[in-house]
Simulated assay, not measured.
Amino acid sequence: MTQAILSKSLYESDFLLWTQDTVAKLKAKDFDHVDLENLIEEIESLGKSEKKEIKSRLTTLLEHLIKRIYVDMPQEFNGWERTIRNQRTEIEFLLDDSPSLQALWNDTFDIAFRAALRDVRKEYSQKGYQFPDVWQFGRDINTMLNVDFWE
């Protein structure tokens, strides 16, 4: 019991040291002294973080795709295209590291598209630009990561 209290205290006071201590205990197979409660919480948090990151990156990708496709501002094209390339690369990295995120793609896409559309409309509707209510192109992973829809 004392060890669990010390581990929790370490978790709260020095997270890096707690991770190092936890890894050392796991490697030594000293499972009786591992702070399981906080370890479980951290592992759950990692999964949530991955889901949040793919949603965030897909939202940014969609925002810039919408702008590049529908907003006629050639002076901005290069910046939007750079962001599109960067987000596509980061999404590829995420999917490579966690292929199971692919199973969430369709649900994530719908949420990300609504958020991206809301933000782009807020930014450009007063300037007379109109945006469709639905994504009018392919939405599968391969298409989203490789097709330049504006060409």
Rank of each mutant, 00 (worst) to 15 (best):
D32S: 12
V34E: 05
D110S: 14
N78S: 13
E81R: 15
L10C: 11
I5G: 13
L10N: 13
G47P: 09
S56H: 11
A103T: 09
E12P: 08
H33E: 14
S125E: 09
L39M: 05
R57H: 02
R57W: 01
I84V: 03
S100P: 13
A24D: 09
L17W: 05
D148W: 08
F137D: 05
Q130I: 05
S125W: 06
L95E: 02
R82L: 12
K51T: 04
E123F: 03
A112V: 02
L101G: 11
T143D: 07
E42C: 00
F77D: 10
T89S: 14
T83K: 11
A112Q: 05
E42I: 00
E151G: 11
H33A: 12
D14C: 08
S13M: 04
S13Y: 00
S7K: 10
Y70W: 07
L26G: 09
L117M: 02
G128A: 02
R88H: 07
E92A: 09
V147Y: 11
R57E: 00
Q3T: 14
I69E: 03
I141L: 01
T83I: 02
N78E: 08
D140V: 03
W18R: 07
K25F: 01
S45A: 06
R139Y: 06
R121M: 03
E92N: 14
P99H: 04
D119Y: 10
